[in-house]
């Protein structure tokens, strides 16, 4: 009897999936994916680091310590420091509104949140030049009042905010929608205020989703080139962010310095990748515990 049962289980096991491809096909597919990754991802990454350290560590560090480089790093950090909190606030509010309430114009809002993804970054930058530039709508008025937006730090921050605003909201909307509003309702019935409900019930439930969105938002804010390039004016030591500075160094045939600065962005990418993987895993857990 027991032998009989065991043969049944094995036969079931070997046929537990309808699309059980032969091993060769499976390995071939995996190999193709891995080769592709190596060619287009690992190789360039390795090239960046080998070029950066080509002339030794001291040259690498000197390249980073150079005044214009330091100021570009500072500007990039300032930009991110403005963009990430603002987009965090916007993303959480928008996701909260979309996932938990029904209101007219909801679909329009969802479409608008996606807009920066579908518009070329160059256009995103150009919009700000058209509005705030000297030939723009309110450019002359700004000049009269001595307020600089385009070709200055505010313009860079504005363009970056525009480019990065979908990240947090896009991550949170599906998560919040899947979790429904029953827990919030339960909290309200138990006497919690709206703020208590948000802080003690909603926020912990989407914590990892927020971290995921923030890390992606941050990576993009620090790495954005196109939109920032249009509004920055490329003034060395003043309106150059790290990506723009890499381009300038490269165009000046200063390869070691260019790659040294680029390696900073590569580091950022690697850290982002690790945190993103952890966050993804945690988000899945939050959804499964539902």
């Amino acid at each position: 009897m027991s032998a009989h049962v065991s043969t049944i289980t094995t036969s079931v096991k070997s046929k537990d999936r309808a699309q059980n491809e032969p091993a060769v096909v499976r390995w071939l597919l995996i190999a193709v994916a891995l080769i592709f990754l190596a060619l287009f991802l690992a190789l360039p990454l390795a090239a960046v680091f080998s070029q950066a350290f080509e002339k030794g560590l001291s040259v690498y560090l000197d390249a980073l310590r150079e005044a214009d480089t330091m100021s570009s790093i500072k500007l990039t950090l300032i930009t991110a420091a403005f963009c990430v909190p603002l987009n965090l606030f916007f993303g959480v509010t928008a996701a909260w509104a979309i996932a938990k309430f029904t209101f007219p114009g909801k679909n329009l809002l969802i479409t608008l949140i996606d807009l920066p993804f579908s518009v070329s970054p160059v256009i995103s930058g150009l919009i700000y030049v058209l509005i705030f530039g000297l030939q723009g709508w309110i450019g002359p008025w700004l000049q009269d009042h001595d307020i600089k937006i385009v070709f200055a730090v505010p313009g860079i921050i504005l363009a970056t905010i525009f480019v990065t605003f979908p990240f947090v909201a896009r991550e949170l909307i599906p998560l919040m929608e899947a979790q429904g509003r029953e827990e919030e309702e339960a909290a309200l019935v138990l006497g919690a205020t709206g703020l208590q409900t948000f802080l003690r019930v909603t926020l912990p439930n989407v914590k990892w989703g927020i971290i995921y969105g923030v890390i992606l938002c941050n990576a993009r804010a620090m790495g954005e080139f196109g939109a920032v390039s249009v509004v920055s004016g490329h003034i060395r030591g003043m309106t150059n962010t790290v990506p723009l500075h890499v381009e300038i160094l490269y165009n000046e045939y200063n390869y070691t310095a260019a790659f040294a600065v680029a390696s900073l962005l590569a580091f950022l990418a690697l850290i982002t990748l690790v945190v993103k993987t952890i966050a993804e895993w945690k988000v899945r857990q939050q959804l499964e515990n539902h």
Partner: peptide, 28 residues
């Protein structure tokens, strides 16, 4: 709803998933 002092039990429990049983019961 906050002022009505009703107890509500949901079909799918709606327990706070990130809180322990103790914290769930203590929430109110």
């Amino acid at each position: 709803v906050r002022e009505r002092r009703v107890g509500f039990v949901f079909q799918h429990y709606a327990l706070f998933r990130h809180m322990t049983v103790f914290d769930n019961v203590a929430f109110g």
